[in-house]
Design a protein around this nucleic acid. Structure first.
Length: 561
RNA sequence: CGGGGUGUGGCUCAGUUGGCUAGAGUGCUUGGUUUGGGACCAAGAGGCCGUGGGUUCGAGUCCCACCACCCCGACCA
């Protein structure tokens, strides 16, 4: 490709509203341009990278035996009604109507479409398992797009869906996809960590996000130093340390407590450590049910774990009036003597790691001391509802550290969720109809591209790994000397003939501009043709990732790169 | 959706208490001088100042409404 004809230009100035490094560089170097919030144009350079990424994913997916298909962009809304996802999809569905008034959703994910096409066939257990995937535009009306390509409202995603006879068979596919993902990202120069994550309302044990550790990421995870445990903050488990279990139980007493409504006020007033207080937080479910989370004072409630523990869709904090309506007082809530008909009490496992707790007495300026579970109060459910934090110990006793990362892909267990809701069955060995056990596996291409740039750049520009670079070689000609021009043209043809992807900077511009642009665009190899070296029949070869320049005989350069 | 901010040639920005023909740099075009890390000189093209309304003799500037974009938060199968 001749750079003089390349559509899209580099730009010296950094766009003022760009935040992420990838956003600044991809814009300045002429890979993408923004349209409206969260929607991007991919220019020729950007498109070439996008295609390289797609090719790697396709190769590795095909290697696992998965097969590529394509579903329509518009999904008939009836399908989404079958799975009750018209309102609860988690992202706002965008809807359109055709000339007959038929309603469609712009696809944000394709479980319904895939199950629908599968159930059009008369499938037997002999046909199972299979995994079908596509690359297609996904529309997600995110509340807020951010970070350039890192979070957009419209993007191309590889989404794969596998169909199985049994859970055991699904597990094999899950492992296979896990390995394929590791290969895919490694080939692109990305080091990923697979973290356990939340499966939303579908539930199930198998669900992992593949994240690339980066400060600009939105996923927070906790992991052990050796990487044997890694989980999203939302689901991370940890070992609660025992405190004073050897102490004998004291008799429960009620004490006056003129204090503020905070945990810290309790610590100061009673001269007892934070962990010996009980924290009580009242929530309300979407159905108006009251849920009291009861937890050791030094821990925080993990709302998502609580949501799962009580089987709710969402929770919100209760108002002061609501707190009083269950017979207690803001700042002085306690688990002792509550009416369990009015409120469901959920206790964290940490309540068994200490004795003689101090907590509110459900009336103003009054606390209880020497409170103990089972003896003084009961909970309706005991569960892990605590938020894991850096410094805590993993269940295997290793210290947890917090990392931030960009989620580039995920693998999910869907189980029978969709096949049951959509009545999708196959014929089993005994001739009876059975539901499919399913999994799904996604990778966002634009986000992956941005992540590669986040990880591979310097102050001068992008440094593409070879596998995803738009071109392998950047050929620059310096000066207008006729001999140099001629030699460059010849070399360009020679490189093309050798099957090398080359971007030829044939523009009539100063050396400084060409060299700066070359660094910014970030192709792996740079060849410079100039009068300086041409006299000796040599050209310069430099790797973008290195500082050294090598002089190479012009006759052997095509073989060398 | 709550809070904050910004809209002026392609880009980055200036524009005074309201005042005359709206500026700079960069980029673009043309001519010339240059040619190893964003060169220099000269000439030129390019703007309903986000949109609509209002106040005023006069609005980029003041007022109202709306829209768009950005940041923080909420949200994110």
């Amino acid at each position: 490709m001749r750079q003089s004809k390349l559509f899209g230009k580099t730009q010296k100035e950094t766009p003022s509203d760009a935040v992420a490094e990838s956003q600044k560089l991809l814009h300045r170097a002429g890979y993408v341009r923004d349209s409206v919030a969260g929607r991007y144009y991919f220019l020729p350079l950007g498109m070439r990278v996008h295609e390289k990424i797609e090719k790697i994913i396709r190769e590795e997916m095909d290697r696992t035996g998965a097969e590529q298909i394509l579903t329509p962009t518009l999904h008939q809304l009836e399908l989404w009604k079958e799975t009750n996802r018209t309102d609860t999809a988690g992202f706002e569905l965008m809807k359109v109507k055709d000339r007959n008034g038929a309603e469609f959703a712009l696809g944000g994910t394709a479980e319904e479409m895939i199950v629908d096409v599968v159930r059009k066939f008369n499938i037997s257990y002999k046909d199972l398992p299979f995994n079908i995937y596509q690359f297609s535009n996904k529309f997600r009306d995110e509340m807020r797009a951010r970070g350039g390509l890192l979070r957009t409202r419209e993007f191309i995603m590889k989404d794969a869906y596998s169909f199985h006879e049994t859970e055991a068979d699904f597990k094999k596919e899950y492992e296979k996809m896990w390995k394929a993902y590791e290969t895919i990202f490694a080939r692109m120069g990305l080091k990923t960590v697979a973290i356990e994550s939340d499966n939303g309302y579908i539930g199930g044990e198998y669900c992992h996000e593949f994240i690339v550790e980066s400060a600009s990421g939105e996923s927070k995870a906790l992991t052990t130093e050796d990487g044997t445990y890694a989980a999203h903050e939302e689901v991370a488990k940890f070992k609660r340390d025992n405190k004073n279990l050897d102490e004998s139980l004291g008799g429960m007493i009620e004490v006056e407590a003129k204090r503020e409504n905070t945990m810290q006020a309790g610590v100061e007033l009673h001269k007892l450590p934070l962990w010996q207080q009980i924290k009580n937080v009242l929530f309300v479910t979407e159905k108006g049910r009251f849920i009291l989370a009861v937890i050791r004072g030094d821990l925080a409630v993990n709302e998502l774990k609580l949501v799962h523990a009580v089987g709710a869709l969402i929770l919100r904090a209760a108002t002061d009036e609501e707190i009083r309506s269950i017979g207690t007082e803001p700042g002085f809530i306690g688990p002792v003597g509550l009416d369990h008909k009015k409120v469901t009490v959920v206790g964290d496992l940490s309540l068994r790691t200490a004795v003689n707790f101090c907590t509110g007495a459900n009336k103003q300026y009054c606390d209880l001391q020497n409170v103990n579970i089972d003896r003084d109060f009961n909970v309706d459910k005991e569960a892990d509802i605590a938020l894991a934090e850096a410094g805590f110990l993993s269940e295997s006793g290793k210290e947890l550290r917090e990392i931030k990362g960009i989620e580039v892909g995920n693998i999910f267990q869907l189980g029978y969720h969709y096949s049951k809701l959509m009545n999708a069955t196959f014929t089993g060995k005994d001739g009876k109809e059975e539901f499919y056990y399913m999994g799904c596996y996604g990778i966002g291409l634009g986000r992956t591209m941005a992540t590669i740039v986040e990880m591979h750049n310097d102050e001068k520009g992008i440094i593409w790994p070879e596998a995803v670079a738009p071109f392998q070689v950047h050929l620059l000609t310096l000066g207008e000397d006729e001999k140099v021009m001629k030699a460059s043209e010849q070399l360009y043809e020679e490189l093309l003939a050798a099957g090398i992807e080359v971007l030829f900077d044939d523009r009539d511009l100063s050396a400084g501009i060409k060299l700066k642009d070359s660094d910014l665009i970030g192709l792996p190899k740079r060849i410079v043709v100039s009068t300086k070296t041409l006299e000796q029949n040599k050209v310069e070869l430099k790797l973008r990732s290195e500082d050294e320049i090598e002089l190479v005989d012009i006759s052997s350069i095509a073989k060398k790169v």
